[in-house]
């Protein structure tokens, strides 16, 4: 399968049923590549031998190399998604890449950098299911020349309690089956909205840089973050800022100039979504 996701084409080869099932559920709205060029050639398959009968596993390879240890077979689809992220963060330096969700409304991008456990993906899923366009739930691709954000819409990764939060928030949403006992706990993936996938090639202009933090029962609160401090926090969430040198600094500084910067605390998703739906565009 030659899968086109935003700027990248990935050739995926796998005999694993869970991979086929996950791709069918999550990527039905996506375009296929033209089978002439792929940025990444990956395979996911079960190692052979006695182990395949006793404790079935799945192994990932990129261009023939196997950079990771195998995982239990029931984690095959999760491994595919993790490895698709890894392919980008380990090989792509034509963008400044932030570990951040990014969504768009009226042409303006909301960037949500945050470490795991901050409620980033839950907030991202809630906003997407409320009409915001998903550009990515993990990787914000900043064009070094234009300063725009390139879309990379793919399934949203949800963990543990956030799975039920989103299932209750949007009962019609489409998920993969749940995978238990991963290194991240129980995980599943949420299918991106068709409208997000349909605009996989439309860049967005950065407008808001928001650092989310989930806290039980906390009222939804936006607090302005000074821009220099926003720069420092965003840089710490970048995969290739140091590697890009002056280009990385200039791209991140330009992004900070364009954005209103905030810290955001929330405890209830509905309240958070309502607050972002009322967010005013930056004045400058």
């Amino acid at each position: 399968m030659w899968l086109r996701t935003g700027p990248f084409t990935t050739r995926i080869q796998s005999p694993v049923h869970l991979i086929a099932e996950g791709l069918h559920t999550m990527y039905a709205d996506f375009s296929l590549g033209d089978e002439e060029y792929a940025d990444f050639h990956i395979r996911l398959r079960s190692p052979r031998g006695l182990r395949s009968w006793l404790r079935p596993q799945v192994n990932f390879s990129l261009d023939g190399g196997e950079p990771f240890n195998p995982l239990p077979l029931n984690q095959a689809y999760a491994m595919l998604e993790w490895c698709l992220n890894w392919c980008v963060t380990s090989n792509v330096n034509t963008f400044l890449i932030l570990h951040a969700a990014v969504l768009e409304r009226d042409g303006r991008a909301l960037i949500l950098p945050a470490p795991p456990g901050s409620g980033k993906s839950t907030l991202c899923a809630g906003l997407m299911l409320s009409g915001w366009r998903l550009l990515s739930d993990e990787l914000t691709l900043i064009d070094l020349a234009m300063g725009t954000i390139a879309p990379l819409p793919r399934p949203v990764s949800l963990k543990n309690a956030s799975i039920d939060v989103i299932a209750a928030f949007a009962p019609g949403a489409s998920f993969t089956r749940r995978t238990h006992d991963t290194v991240k706990g129980t995980i599943c993936h949420l299918r991106p909205t068709a409208s997000s996938v349909a605009r996989s090639y439309d860049p967005a202009y950065p407008a808001w840089l928001v650092f989310p933090h989930w806290e039980a029962d906390a009222p939804a609160t936006l607090t302005t973050r000074p821009k220099a401090r926003a720069f420092m926090e965003a840089a710490s969430n970048a995969f290739n800022y140091s590697l890009l040198g002056a280009q990385g600094f200039a791209a991140l500084a330009a992004l900070i100039e364009r954005c209103d910067c905030y810290d955001f605390r929330y405890g209830r998703l509905e309240e958070a979504v309502a607050l972002f739906n009322g967010l005013k565009p930056p004045s400058s």
């Binding site: 000074p226 002056a246 600094f249 200039a250």
Partner: peptide, 12 residues
Amino acid sequence: DLSLRRWDNEWV
């Protein structure tokens, strides 16, 4: 090879 930028009363 330093890059410098000022925002309000702080610099990076």
